[in-house]
Design a protein around this nucleic acid. Sequence first.
DNA 1: AACACATGTAAAGCACGCTTGACACGCGAC
DNA 2: GTCGCGTGTCAAGCGTGCTTTACATGTGTT
Lengths: 68, 68
Amino acid sequence: MKNRLRELREQKGWSQQTLAEKLDVSRQTVISIELGKYDPSLPLAFAIASTFSSRIEDIFTPDVRRRS
Amino acid sequence: MKNRLRELREQKGWSQQTLAEKLDVSRQTVISIELGKYDPSLPLAFAIASTFSSRIEDIFTPDVRRRS
DNA sequence: AACACATGTAAAGCACGCTTGACACGCGAC
DNA sequence: GTCGCGTGTCAAGCGTGCTTTACATGTGTT
């Protein structure tokens, strides 16, 4: 799962801490998602999309699917 | 998190088992998500949206957000 | 009646999402 | 130099997403 979180955050000029507070999660969570260490939960993905006035599909792009 | 999974599955005339196979998850997972027992992971949400040729936002709707 | 099929519940186990706290490094301001 | 700030790493702990197996119930078919 790739994401544009860092790019969008920097566009806004927000620190990781600032974004974490807006999303109501810890700074670690922001770091881990930006670095691709794991994917956000669906509720958090909605919160992120909302924060950047975007759609989830415009911020996150899934990796190759297996089973057609 | 509300979702229209059952509605969409029934529109297609698919059993839970059939959908589970298309999504490459267990039948239990389909049941639990349909019944709202928990939310799907983001990758699974993408797979669901893809299966129904919809956007995540058109299938899942987040509950009330806390922190503005 | 016996069978297949669709749906639901329950429980145990593993991996992941998220938390907190501590520590390290680089950088610009004082 | 040292201070604050932004970023990153590590580790322990907890709840959730997902799995497998098993069992129960209803409905339709033979």
